[in-house]
Computed example of a mutant assay.
Amino acid sequence: MEAVERAFRALDEGIADYLARKGIRPSCGPGCFACCYGWVTASRLEAQALLPHLTEAQKARVLEEGPRRLALLAREKDDPGFSRRFFLSRSPCPLLEAGLCGVYAHRPLACRGVLTDEDPAYCDPENPHPAPKPHHGPGHFLRVPHRMARRRMEELWEEERAQTGFLVLGELSGLLYLLLTGLPEDREGVEARLEALGVLGGRFGFQVV
Protein backbone atom coordinates (compact mmCIF):
# COMPACT_ATOMS: atom_id res chain seq x y z
CA MET A 1 0.00 0.00 0.00
CA GLU A 2 2.89 2.33 -0.77
CA ALA A 3 0.68 4.60 -2.89
CA VAL A 4 -1.57 5.28 0.10
CA GLU A 5 1.35 6.04 2.42
CA ARG A 6 2.83 8.37 -0.21
CA ALA A 7 -0.48 10.19 -0.49
CA PHE A 8 -0.67 10.57 3.30
CA ARG A 9 2.87 11.96 3.53
CA ALA A 10 2.37 14.33 0.60
CA LEU A 11 -0.85 15.71 2.06
CA ASP A 12 0.50 16.08 5.59
CA GLU A 13 3.61 17.85 4.32
CA GLY A 14 1.61 20.08 1.99
CA ILE A 15 -0.80 21.11 4.72
CA ALA A 16 2.02 21.77 7.20
CA ASP A 17 3.80 23.95 4.64
CA TYR A 18 0.63 25.90 3.88
CA LEU A 19 -0.15 26.51 7.56
CA ALA A 20 3.43 27.64 8.25
CA ARG A 21 3.48 30.05 5.30
CA LYS A 22 0.13 31.58 6.25
CA GLY A 23 0.82 31.62 9.98
CA ILE A 24 -2.34 29.64 10.67
CA ARG A 25 -2.49 27.50 13.78
CA PRO A 26 -5.27 24.90 13.80
CA SER A 27 -7.25 24.62 17.00
CA CYS A 28 -7.94 20.90 16.48
CA GLY A 29 -6.54 18.66 19.21
CA PRO A 30 -7.07 15.63 21.47
CA GLY A 31 -10.62 15.43 22.74
CA CYS A 32 -11.94 17.40 19.75
CA PHE A 33 -13.91 14.86 17.73
CA ALA A 34 -17.15 16.37 16.43
CA CYS A 35 -15.90 15.78 12.87
CA CYS A 36 -15.89 12.04 13.69
CA TYR A 37 -19.70 12.16 13.42
CA GLY A 38 -19.44 12.91 9.71
CA TRP A 39 -20.09 10.67 6.71
CA VAL A 40 -16.56 9.80 5.55
CA THR A 41 -15.97 8.60 1.99
CA ALA A 42 -12.92 6.51 1.17
CA SER A 43 -11.63 4.45 -1.72
CA ARG A 44 -11.15 0.71 -1.54
CA LEU A 45 -7.38 1.26 -1.72
CA GLU A 46 -7.44 3.44 1.41
CA ALA A 47 -9.68 1.00 3.27
CA GLN A 48 -7.46 -1.95 2.35
CA ALA A 49 -4.41 -0.07 3.64
CA LEU A 50 -6.22 0.60 6.93
CA LEU A 51 -7.29 -3.00 7.58
CA PRO A 52 -3.90 -4.34 8.84
CA HIS A 53 -3.80 -1.59 11.48
CA LEU A 54 -7.17 -2.40 13.05
CA THR A 55 -7.21 -4.07 16.45
CA GLU A 56 -9.56 -6.95 17.11
CA ALA A 57 -11.77 -4.62 19.15
CA GLN A 58 -11.91 -2.13 16.28
CA LYS A 59 -12.77 -4.90 13.82
CA ALA A 60 -15.56 -6.04 16.13
CA ARG A 61 -17.04 -2.53 16.20
CA VAL A 62 -16.81 -2.26 12.41
CA LEU A 63 -18.57 -5.62 12.05
CA GLU A 64 -21.33 -4.34 14.34
CA GLU A 65 -21.67 -0.84 12.87
CA GLY A 66 -21.13 -1.67 9.18
CA PRO A 67 -24.48 -3.41 8.57
CA ARG A 68 -26.35 -0.59 10.30
CA ARG A 69 -24.79 2.03 8.05
CA LEU A 70 -25.33 -0.04 4.92
CA ALA A 71 -29.00 -0.49 5.80
CA LEU A 72 -29.32 3.24 6.47
CA LEU A 73 -27.65 3.99 3.15
CA ALA A 74 -29.96 1.62 1.27
CA ARG A 75 -32.95 3.59 2.58
CA GLU A 76 -31.63 7.12 2.23
CA LYS A 77 -28.84 7.22 -0.36
CA ASP A 78 -30.88 9.40 -2.74
CA ASP A 79 -32.00 11.95 -0.13
CA PRO A 80 -30.12 15.30 -0.49
CA GLY A 81 -30.44 15.95 3.25
CA PHE A 82 -29.11 12.59 4.35
CA SER A 83 -25.51 13.55 5.20
CA ARG A 84 -26.59 16.46 7.39
CA ARG A 85 -29.17 14.33 9.20
CA PHE A 86 -26.54 11.66 9.78
CA PHE A 87 -24.15 14.28 11.23
CA LEU A 88 -26.87 15.54 13.54
CA SER A 89 -27.60 11.99 14.70
CA ARG A 90 -24.19 11.97 16.41
CA SER A 91 -23.28 8.46 15.31
CA PRO A 92 -19.54 8.26 15.98
CA CYS A 93 -17.06 6.53 13.74
CA PRO A 94 -16.50 3.00 15.10
CA LEU A 95 -12.77 3.77 15.19
CA LEU A 96 -13.27 6.60 17.70
CA GLU A 97 -11.97 5.59 21.13
CA ALA A 98 -12.41 7.71 24.27
CA GLY A 99 -12.51 10.92 22.21
CA LEU A 100 -9.47 10.01 20.11
CA CYS A 101 -9.08 8.52 16.65
CA GLY A 102 -7.97 4.93 17.21
CA VAL A 103 -6.17 4.86 13.84
CA TYR A 104 -4.95 8.45 13.75
CA ALA A 105 -1.67 7.75 11.93
CA HIS A 106 -3.58 5.82 9.27
CA ARG A 107 -6.76 7.93 9.07
CA PRO A 108 -8.18 8.58 5.56
CA LEU A 109 -7.29 11.56 3.41
CA ALA A 110 -10.80 12.97 3.85
CA CYS A 111 -10.22 13.19 7.61
CA ARG A 112 -6.77 14.75 7.25
CA GLY A 113 -8.15 17.67 5.29
CA VAL A 114 -10.69 18.74 7.93
CA LEU A 115 -9.12 21.52 10.01
CA THR A 116 -10.23 24.73 11.67
CA ASP A 117 -8.54 27.64 13.42
CA GLU A 118 -11.77 28.65 15.15
CA ASP A 119 -13.10 27.40 18.47
CA PRO A 120 -13.55 23.61 18.07
CA ALA A 121 -16.93 24.01 19.75
CA TYR A 122 -18.20 25.30 16.40
CA CYS A 123 -17.62 21.81 14.96
CA ASP A 124 -20.48 20.50 17.09
CA PRO A 125 -23.46 20.03 14.77
CA GLU A 126 -25.72 21.88 17.18
CA ASN A 127 -23.59 25.05 17.38
CA PRO A 128 -23.95 27.90 14.87
CA HIS A 129 -20.86 28.66 12.81
CA PRO A 130 -19.26 32.10 12.97
CA ALA A 131 -19.00 34.35 9.95
CA PRO A 132 -16.33 32.74 7.75
CA LYS A 133 -12.93 34.33 7.30
CA PRO A 134 -11.34 34.70 3.82
CA HIS A 135 -9.34 31.47 4.22
CA HIS A 136 -12.38 29.47 5.33
CA GLY A 137 -14.59 27.37 3.15
CA PRO A 138 -18.25 26.80 4.00
CA GLY A 139 -18.66 27.34 7.72
CA HIS A 140 -15.41 27.65 9.64
CA PHE A 141 -13.20 24.94 8.12
CA LEU A 142 -9.98 25.83 6.32
CA ARG A 143 -10.56 25.85 2.57
CA VAL A 144 -7.07 25.04 1.26
CA PRO A 145 -6.36 21.88 3.31
CA HIS A 146 -9.76 20.56 2.24
CA ARG A 147 -8.90 21.18 -1.42
CA MET A 148 -5.48 19.64 -1.00
CA ALA A 149 -7.04 16.50 0.48
CA ARG A 150 -9.47 16.28 -2.41
CA ARG A 151 -6.62 16.51 -4.92
CA ARG A 152 -4.69 13.71 -3.19
CA MET A 153 -7.85 11.61 -3.08
CA GLU A 154 -8.34 12.01 -6.81
CA GLU A 155 -4.72 11.00 -7.45
CA LEU A 156 -5.24 7.89 -5.33
CA TRP A 157 -8.43 7.09 -7.23
CA GLU A 158 -6.42 7.07 -10.45
CA GLU A 159 -3.88 4.79 -8.78
CA GLU A 160 -6.64 2.36 -7.84
CA ARG A 161 -7.94 2.36 -11.41
CA ALA A 162 -4.43 1.65 -12.67
CA GLN A 163 -4.00 -1.25 -10.25
CA THR A 164 -7.40 -2.94 -10.56
CA GLY A 165 -9.05 -1.47 -13.64
CA PHE A 166 -11.85 0.21 -11.67
CA LEU A 167 -12.48 2.33 -8.60
CA VAL A 168 -14.68 1.60 -5.57
CA LEU A 169 -15.77 4.55 -3.42
CA GLY A 170 -18.00 4.39 -0.38
CA GLU A 171 -18.62 5.24 3.26
CA LEU A 172 -15.63 4.18 5.34
CA SER A 173 -17.31 1.96 7.96
CA GLY A 174 -19.45 0.16 5.40
CA LEU A 175 -16.47 -0.32 3.11
CA LEU A 176 -14.33 -1.75 5.91
CA TYR A 177 -17.18 -4.08 6.82
CA LEU A 178 -17.46 -5.31 3.24
CA LEU A 179 -13.72 -5.93 3.04
CA LEU A 180 -13.72 -7.81 6.36
CA THR A 181 -16.59 -10.01 5.27
CA GLY A 182 -15.33 -10.57 1.73
CA LEU A 183 -15.75 -8.13 -1.15
CA PRO A 184 -15.27 -9.68 -4.60
CA GLU A 185 -12.15 -8.72 -6.56
CA ASP A 186 -13.80 -8.32 -9.98
CA ARG A 187 -15.95 -5.38 -11.02
CA GLU A 188 -19.01 -7.47 -11.82
CA GLY A 189 -18.83 -9.17 -8.43
CA VAL A 190 -18.43 -5.88 -6.57
CA GLU A 191 -21.36 -4.31 -8.39
CA ALA A 192 -23.52 -7.38 -7.77
CA ARG A 193 -22.75 -7.34 -4.02
CA LEU A 194 -23.47 -3.63 -3.68
CA GLU A 195 -26.61 -3.90 -5.80
CA ALA A 196 -27.89 -6.75 -3.65
CA LEU A 197 -27.39 -4.60 -0.55
CA GLY A 198 -29.19 -1.69 -2.20
CA VAL A 199 -26.27 0.70 -1.73
CA LEU A 200 -24.96 1.08 -5.29
CA GLY A 201 -25.35 4.51 -6.87
CA GLY A 202 -27.46 7.42 -5.77
CA ARG A 203 -26.34 10.68 -4.23
CA PHE A 204 -24.55 9.08 -1.27
CA GLY A 205 -24.28 5.44 -2.28
CA PHE A 206 -21.24 3.43 -3.29
CA GLN A 207 -19.73 4.22 -6.66
CA VAL A 208 -17.96 1.78 -8.97
CA VAL A 209 -16.25 3.63 -11.83
Rank of each mutant, 00 (worst) to 15 (best):
L194N: 04
L115R: 14
N127K: 13
L179N: 05
E126Q: 13
E188W: 01
A7M: 00
E195L: 06
F82R: 01
A60D: 15
G139M: 14
Q207L: 14
A10N: 03
A71K: 02
L197Y: 08
L100K: 11
F82I: 10
G31P: 03
E118Y: 14
Y37G: 09
R187M: 13
E185Y: 02
C123A: 05
M153I: 12
R44Q: 02
M148H: 06
S83K: 14
Y18M: 04
A162N: 08
L100P: 01
D186N: 03
P92M: 08
C111A: 11
S89L: 08
E5K: 09
L178C: 12
L167F: 14
G29F: 09
R90D: 08
R143M: 13
D117K: 09
R75D: 07
I24D: 08
A192P: 14
L175F: 06
W157T: 06
G38V: 07
R107G: 04
E158P: 04
E155Y: 04
V114T: 11
A162F: 10
S91I: 14
L156F: 12
W157K: 12
E191M: 13
L183P: 02
V4S: 00
R203C: 06
L176W: 10
L183R: 02
S83E: 14
A71N: 10
L72D: 15
C35V: 03
G182Q: 08
V114F: 15
Q48W: 03
R6V: 11
T181R: 15
G189Y: 09
G202Y: 00
G201E: 06
D78I: 08
G139H: 13
R25Q: 15
E191P: 01
T41V: 13
Q48T: 12
P132Y: 09
Y104A: 06
C101N: 07
T116P: 06
A47P: 08
R6H: 13
